[in-house]
Amino acid sequence: MVVFLDGTIYTGREGVYQKVVGEGAPLPADLSSISNVNFHCSPAASQNPDGSYRVGAVTATASFRFAKWMERWFEISGAKVIIGKGGMSEKDYKELFVPQGAVYLTTVGYGTGALLGRGIKRVEDVHWLDELGIAQAMWVLEVENFGPLLVDGDARGNSLFERQQTQVNANLERLYDGLKKPALHRYGETDDRRDELI
């Protein structure tokens, strides 16, 4: 269940998705032959005087925000592994990931930035750095013993998070036993905007 990766991975989050899926920009040449592992991440990186890049730490950003781009992204990029923070819903795994043969690995912690940073051997390339900035650019990274990662979304679309949550949820109601509700409610407690909150 604990996974460590060797090989080449690349970062991509809302900046890259918006550019490629939203605006139709072409992917860097041969991306899918270089790597099919997409990491939801922004590295803490800086440029050395010789033009090379230094990556100190890497940690993932929360993936649920990117679900809306995934279907098209899989088709365009050929990605088979998504690494991120916190996973997506089991519904997303079954509807979007499984048909593409893709799985989801979650980083641990969060975040084990120094351990993951150690696993980065080299910055192979960086795309759209000027347009998107360090945090949103696509970084192509050579990695070795890159982890720890846990399988959240497996080949059948099961989610480790959701299975654990089902058990945690069974316990939640009793926590509120005997605690009276606040006088002023909020939308969210009701989603009917015709309701008054007093």
Partner: peptide, 8 residues
């Protein structure tokens, strides 16, 4: 390693 513990 004297590297940041978290990239964020």
């Amino acid at each position: 390693d004297r590297r940041p513990m978290c990239a964020d």
